[in-house]
Design a protein around this nucleic acid. Structure first.
Lengths: 235, 235
DNA sequence: AAAGTACAACCTGTACACAGCTGAACTTTT
DNA sequence: AAAAGTTCAGCTGTGTACAGGTTGTACTTT
């Protein structure tokens, strides 16, 4: 059943190229990260032809990526105008955070995963990175990447695939909005809050208490929302 | 600011055509409903060119619709093969139902909507339709449409936009799988279960108790999962 | 007769040209 | 000078041809 031509194509692909699906995922992840890490802040206008030139492809695969980003709620495609990185209104922001708190608690209740030594080691690494950051003020991108990595670890601990899916969806949707407010908060304050969350989660994980992990996460989201609520005023 | 040419185009559009966005939504809703109502049962292979011919457009807009359906989890696009209506494995099915129960309860807790006379009237209509169905056995599509309409009403009662969004997502993702089992269940049984849910929800709505609505819905999902669990055996 | 191979018919993925839309700068009119 | 009208550059939407992938089938070889 294996054809020679196919075998050759697969070998060549393994050496140099990448399959179409891989290319799509690569470009998608790249643009998503740029939006989430505020390389493209809300309001940025993205052009299909510009992106196509940068990635060395035609508009067609770029359009596919942008449409997926639109489904994810990260951009809005407007005919004749361009593809605009979305902002989020105050009401939706708060609703999303309320929901994220509930979902974090469910993380510990619906088919929680078993916690291994490896998970603990990963958390310890994050704690070490966060402690280093205490001495270097205003490294917002590093702070954001620790938050991103924590999210990935918690994702791997969520046994329920559907739950994991929507937790990630809403994380990506509001994280970048939250990062917008970072410079307005005190550096020492947010770093110590991050260390508090990490150590609480680590303690719960050490006793294989996924419900405790979920509660810690939910509580952290609540504290963070409180922290920036004074900046969230209706116009 | 209004140009003559634009004005003409808008008038012409109002009479005959439709804007691009409307066309997309129309085709998307049509294909989604066909999948959910089992016109395209799981495993069906959809061809872009065939669909393009049917809707009188080129492959491009059809591809956009299919990619959105893939994002919703209703189809899987495979290069060289076709676009296949997805089935769902047992584990994911149960996980999705567990999550849906929790989300139904959240519906009553996160910014619940105020219930009007109009909502009650809509539920009464559904009850009337369900009672008529008691006499006509095995009208599975009518049964499914009542379920669909109830979902729409509950959706309009969910104040939190993000919550509403994912409740709908998971409804569309598993409803059609559930409908697959309908013929294996007793008609009288499922109709009476539907009437039970409708009357419980109506009672809660009559006293403006959205938490009660959520609990009724959650309980109904639990009962239904129990009902078909004897058919859900590992291969 | 059975296994392996080449191929044809189908599919989706990509590139590109063109049509339609939008907003802003510019020109004309009052 | 203000307001209305016009033009235009740039954008996304669409159609279409072609490239690449997959699978079943007919054919060849052992």
């Amino acid at each position: 059943m294996i054809k020679l031509a196919e075998s050759d194509a697969q070998r060549a692909r393994a050496q140099n190229d990448e399959t179409g699906s891989q290319r799509f995922e690569r470009i998608y992840a790249e643009l998503r990260d740029r939006i989430c890490l505020l390389v493209y802040p809300p309001g940025t206008v993205l052009s299909e032809v510009t992106l196509a030139r940068e990635f060395g492809v035609s508009r067609t695969p770029i359009r596919r990526v942008l449409h997926r980003l639109e489904f994810m709620g990260l951009v809005q495609i407007m005919n004749g105008v361009g593809t605009i990185v979305t902002d989020i209104d105050l009401k939706t922001f708060k609703e999303t955070y309320d929901l994220r708190m509930r979902l974090a608690e469910l993380m510990g209740e619906l088919s929680p995963a078993y916690i291994t030594e490896d998970h603990l080691a990963q958390i310890d690494q994050l704690i070490a990175r966060a402690k280093k950051l205490q001495k270097h003020r205003d490294r917002f991108e590093d702070y954001a990447m620790i938050t991103n990595d924590l999210q990935k670890i918690l994702s791997s601990l969520t046994g329920s695939a559907p739950l994991r899916e929507i937790i990630e969806l809403f994380y990506f949707r509001v994280a970048r909005i939250w990062f917008t407010f970072l410079p307005q908060l005190g550096w020492d304050d947010i770093i110590s809050a991050q260390l508090t969350e990490l150590s609480e989660i680590r303690a719960a994980m050490a006793s294989n208490d996924m419900r405790g992990v979920g509660r810690s996460r939910s509580l952290h989201l609540h504290r963070m929302l409180t922290r920036i609520s004074r900046f969230l005023v209706e116009p």
